[in-house]
C-alpha cells in the first residue's frame, strides 16, 4: 500500500491557452457526435435485471401465517389480516414499504415473489394499502394506458456505451420465478 502524492497543475499562459482550446474541442466533439445515455421514459423502459426488487406478489397457497415477514419488515409495512378461513394473511402498505425485500428473504416457505415492476402510481393514500387479494394478483396496471415501446438496457461494448433496445414485452408485470 503506497502513497500517491499528487501535484496540482499550475499552467502558464501558453498551457492555459492550450487547455482552453482542449475544453472547447471536447465540447465541440460531443456537440457533433454526442454519447447520449438518456432513456426516454415512459416511451422506453429500463430493463430490470433478474432479481430486481420490485412490487411484491404473494403466493397464498404457500403462506402458513407464521407472521415472520410482518415481524422483520423494517418499515412496519406488513399488516396481518384475518381471512374468512380463519387464517391470517399479510397485506402491504405501499405508503410505508421501502422495497427492501426483507420479507421475501424471511419467508421460509417462499410465499413472497418479486416482480420486475415498480413504476406505479396510486390515486389516493388509501389505495396504497394493498389487501391480500390484491397482493395475490400482482400490481394492477391498466394496459390501455401503456406508452412504452422499448425496453432499454445499458451495455458496454468495447469503449462505447450502447443502449440495447428491445420491443416491449406483452405483459408489463412479470413475476419472477422462484430460485
Amino acid at each position: 500500500m503506497g502513497v500517491l502524492r499528487i501535484k496540482p497543475p499550475s499552467p502558464d499562459f501558453v498551457e492555459r491557452v492550450k487547455l482552453h482550446l482542449e475544453a472547447f474541442s471536447t465540447g465541440l466533439k460531443e456537440a457533433i457526435k454526442p454519447s447520449r445515455m438518456t432513456i426516454q421514459y415512459p416511451r422506453e423502459l429500463r430493463k430490470r435485471p433478474k432479481g430486481f426488487r420490485g412490487m411484491l406478489v404473494l403466493d397464498i397457497t404457500k403462506c402458513i401465517s407464521c407472521f415472520q415477514c410482518a415481524f422483520v419488515c423494517p418499515a412496519n409495512a406488513i399488516h396481518m389480516k384475518k381471512a374468512p378461513n380463519g387464517k391470517y394473511y399479510p397485506c402491504v402498505d405501499y405508503a410505508k414499504c421501502i422495497f427492501c425485500h426483507y420479507c421475501e428473504d424471511t419467508c421460509t416457505k417462499g410465499a413472497w415473489k418479486s416482480t420486475n415492476f415498480m413504476d406505479v402510481a396510486f390515486k389516493s393514500v388509501d389505495e396504497m394499502f394493498l389487501t391480500t387479494e390484491k397482493l395475490v394478483n400482482g400490481p394492477d396496471v391498466p394496459e390501455e394506458e401503456r406508452e412504452d415501446e422499448y425496453v432499454v438496457e445499458y451495455e458496454v461494448k468495447g469503449k462505447k456505451l450502447e443502449l440495447k433496445k428491445e420491443y416491449s414485452p406483452e405483459k408489463l408485470v412479470e413475476i419472477e420465478d422462484s430460485h
Binding site: 460531443e30 456537440a31 438518456t38 426516454q40
Partner: peptide, 10 residues
Amino acid sequence: KVTARVQWRY
C-alpha cells in the same frame, strides 16, 4: 438544445 447535446441529453 446544444447544451443538451453536449451533456448527453435531448
